[in-house]
Design a protein around this nucleic acid. Structure first.
Length: 837
DNA sequence: GCAAGGTC
């Protein structure tokens, strides 16, 4: 009797398929590696009676790596990894002894049927299996075919039998496209990773990570997190105005209406609409509409959706979730947890699965009601042809599963029950009003039937106060019309759930590898997981991505993967040659690599990597260390640069309410002008035109110390202040002002720079509704009450001796050149001369 | 020590 070897991708599938094909009559034994089983039975194959041996591998048999010496980081230039370095296939998991196991089982077999997953990876594993077993299989005489491929789209009796009756052959082109993907990922990933790691290690002592990895999936994953960080950093809040209208009828309590125009970005326009609204004495009901609406029951659960909910609702990370799911699966509580499918197979036993939960006290009532009243047909989802959706396989209790195990099981079960429940139905009532010339509306929702939200209460329609009964033409009393000032707010850091959605959308990773990539960027210290599982990039992560932005943005864009996959698909379809595509893509990345290497040395990204304490910077370009002011926080200053040396400015801050000033790390150690000393920031810099310099932001002599100048802090709003650049004096002024600027002009009395202030119209403390004023913070009577000079000892010439200001009207002014470091040098030519020294 | 993809 001839023997047919059959191989599936994983042990669980070998068992399911053997059970179907043997009609439950197979005998099973463990293989020599302990992980795989072999299921034996007899049956008919190509018209003959044969012995079947159904077994499996565990994913890929082989994995690609460089040959021996090319794994030595110290002896190989990473550039060689693009072409020169040879690769070889090694056993993916030596412990499993997969090749040996397959050969033992294949010895003496006449035919092989490949039951690997029906995707490109599965096609590739087909050839890995064939490479292992063909040398030991029986050789048949003549041209009889010995290799067959089963193509199935779900693990159901019909589908498996159909596949068995229509055997095809493995697709070499699809397998080759995976070979190409493996080689590209290996060569590109390792070359960049080795180069980056060695480069940073050589320049920095204590980086947060000893491995600075790069990969076509992990790097765009990090890119998403940094992109959001940049959006938050560059966000400028915008003020807008909305009309808040409250109306009531009879003795009922007032309801708040939504304005049809939603919001406007100009206060005057807003006020105009308020006035137009106020021309109406009453709110007239223009229409009342009632609509029955439904919130759809969920689709059957797949892996990515499970990971999203586990992260956002259960606070469990994807890696952890998959470990728990794996355990629940091997213990028989849930079905196979890695699937893209959201559609139940036609013969799926929905009722049987539901019945198992009928005595579970957590949801017994809902389940019993569904069983007696009849379940609802699940929504039509997508069948990816891999595994059925994730469902519970038997009832369980919290005590047997452990905390996280139970929480995940509970969610999976509730989700399953929800998919066979009815939609949630509610009545939506919308009333539209007209007050004066403006339109308003309000909407209320009333529950008709909870449907699936009974078992998923967190999805329920929020309870709202019922709207008053009314009809077209009714008049409501206007309780209040108000113009509210609001501000647009910045987005928050990316949540893990949002990141998963982005990765899925851009095809970064697969259901099985998404958790790995997210875990990678955490473990490499590129991001940290904050409260609410939000991903906040670290300084290292930000610097890396900004570096890619500056050198070659394609290295971090999500399109880097899809562009390559487009090429690979051509191989799979037989439209492009494997070697040509591989060579072409490697050439492109080799060029990118050399450009990256050439650019990185001169790139400003380097001096922004900070050492831990004591704070200092290290520049890789000139291999120099730069000191920084201590006892405060240092961060990048909006990526602004010093006009003298192109160094990126950093901002020193002493605390949340304290002093802050920008500084150039180079000038701090190498004073640019004769009248400057080491250790000075931009607030002491005499550059004639730089917008951050003492010249541009200095206002007047310090009110306490002899030599200091009060310098405006443009980052201090809305609690605006100026701080002395020598001593600790901080002067608060113009609180809540919208804009404060230092003018080019000086006070005629004291020579202090004039200050221009803009207030919001609603908040302006100026007389007669004025919103703008320019004047001297020391002498101007309009500003008198808006500047908190009172706590400081009055050393300013205008204040010395108390009555000076009121006594003489015009001050004595500053003694020319009298006090150490003068404020703004009057003679711009002198300043320019200093610039060129 | 490196990638991404399978799976245990």
């Amino acid at each position: 009797m001839r023997t047919v070897l059959m191989v599936a991708e994983k042990p669980s599938l070998a068992q399911s398929i053997a059970k179907i094909l043997s009609k439950g009559s197979c005998s099973s034994r463990k293989g020599l590696n302990g992980a795989c089983s072999v299921h034996d039975y007899t049956g008919s194959f190509m018209g003959q009676n044969v012995r079947f041996k159904m077994t499996s591998v565990c994913g890929h048999v082989m994995s690609l790596d460089f040959t021996g010496k090319y794994n030595n980081w110290d002896k190989v230039d990473p550039a060689e990894l693009f072409s020169k370095a040879p690769t070889e296939k090694k056993e993916a998991n030596p412990k499993l002894n997969m090749v040996k196991f397959l050969q033992v089982e294949a010895k003496g077999c006449d035919y092989v049927v490949l039951w690997l997953d029906c995707d490109k990876e599965g096609e590739n594993i087909c050839f890995e299996v064939l490479d292992a077993i063909q040398p030991v299989m029986n050789k048949l005489y003549g041209n009889e075919r010995t290799v067959y491929r089963a193509k199935f789209s779900s693990i159901t009796d019909t589908d498996i039998w159909n596949a068995m009756n229509r055997l095809g052959e493995p697709n070499k082109n699809e397998a080759l496209s995976v070979d190409a993907r493996q080689e590209l990922d290996l060569r590109i990933g390792c070359a960049f990773t080795r180069f980056q790691t060695k480069y940073f290690q050589g320049k920095y002592g204590n980086l947060d990570s000893s491995l600075i990895s790069f990969g076509p999936c992990q790097t765009p994953t990090l890119g998403f997190c940094v992109e959001r960080h940049d959006k938050i950093q560059s966000f400028k809040p915008e003020t807008y105005w909305v009309i808040q209208a409250k109306v009531f009828k009879g003795k009922e309590s007032p309801i708040t209406l939504d304005w049809d125009r939603v919001r406007v970005f100009d206060r005057e326009i807003g006020q105009m609409f308020v006035n137009m609204t106020k021309t109406g004495r009453e709110a007239l009901v223009e229409s009342v509409s009632k609509k029955e609406k439904a919130k759809q029951r969920p689709l059957a659960l797949n892996t990515v959706e499970m990971l999203r909910v586990a992260s956002s609702a259960l606070g469990m990370g994807p890696q952890h979730t998959m470990q728990i799911a794996e355990r629940l699966y091997t213990q028989g509580y849930i079905s196979y947890p890695r699937t893209e499918t959201t559609h139940y197979p036609e013969n799926f036993d929905l009722k049987g699965t539901l019945r198992q939960q009928a005595n579970n006290s957590n949801w017994a009532e809902t389940v019993k009601a569904l069983l007696s009243e009849g379940i609802n047909r699940p929504r039509k989802g997508a069948d990816a042809g891999d595994h059925p959706p994730i469902t519970p396989m038997r009832s369980a209790s919290e005590s047997e599963l452990g905390s996280d195990g139970w929480r995940l099981y509970e969610y999976i079960t509730r989700h399953f029950i929800a998919t066979v429940s009815h939609d949630c139905k509610y009545l939506q009532t919308t009333i539209t009003f007209r007050i004066g010339t403006e339109g308003f509306s309000c909407t209320g929702k009333a529950l008709i039937s909870a449907g699936f939200t009974e078992i998923m209460p967190w999805q329920g329609i929020p309870l709202e106060e019922a709207l008053p009964a009314c009809e077209k033409g009714d008049a409501f009393t206007v309780d209040e019309i108000k113009l509210l000032e609001k501000q647009t707010s910045p987005p928050d850091y990316l949540t893990e759930a949002e990141l998963i959605t982005l990765m899925e959308k851009h095809g970064i990773g697969t259901d099985a590898s998404i958790p790995v990539h997210i875990n990678n960027i955490c473990q490499r210290n590129y991001v940290t997981v904050e409260n609410g599982r939000k991903l906040k990039p670290t300084n290292l992560g930000i610097v890396l991505v900004h570096g890619y932005y500056k050198i070659d943005v394609e290295l971090v864009l999500p399109t880097i993967r899809s562009a390559v996959e487009k090429q690979l698909n051509l191989i799979a379809l037989g439209k492009a040659n494997y070697h040509q595509v591989l060579q072409h893509t490697l050439d492109i990345f080799k060029r990118k690599f050399h450009y990256f290497v050439d650019s990185i040395a001169g790139n400003v990204l380097m001096p922004t990597v900070l050492y831990a304490k004591p704070s200092r910077l290290h520049c890789s370009h000139c291999d120099e260390t730069y000191s920084l002011p201590q006892n405060g926080a240092i961060k990048l200053y909006k990526e602004l640069k010093c006009p003298l040396d192109e160094f990126e400015l950093v901002l020193w801050t002493s605390g949340s309410r304290g002093k802050s000033y920008p500084l150039c790390p180079y000038c701090f150690s190498n004073p640019p002008f004769r009248d400057m000393k080491k250790g000075m920031g931009c607030n002491e810099c005499t550059h004639p035109s730089c917008p951050h310099s003492l010249n541009s932001l200095g206002i007047g002599q310090c009110v306490e110390c002899e030599t200091g100048v009060l310098v405006f802090d443009p980052n201090s709003g809305p609690k605006w202040r100026m701080a002395c650049n020598k001593c600790n004096v901080v002067v608060h002024f113009f609180e809540q002002a919208y804009k404060v600027q230092v003018s080019q002009d000086s006070c005629e009395s004291c020579e202090a720079s004039l200050v221009m202030v803009d207030f919001h119209k609603a908040r302006s403390p100026l007389a007669e509704g004025e919103t703008q004023h320019t004047g001297c913070v020391f002498c101007d009577t309009v500003f008198q009450d808006l500047v908190e000079l009172k706590h400081a000892t009055m050393r300013h010439p205008m204040h010395r001796g108390g009555g000076a200001r009121r006594g003489r009207g015009r001050g004595r002014g500053r003694r020319p050149g009298g006090r150490g470091n003068p404020k703004k040098p009057k003679d711009k030519m002198a300043a320019l001369a200093a610039y060129f020294v």
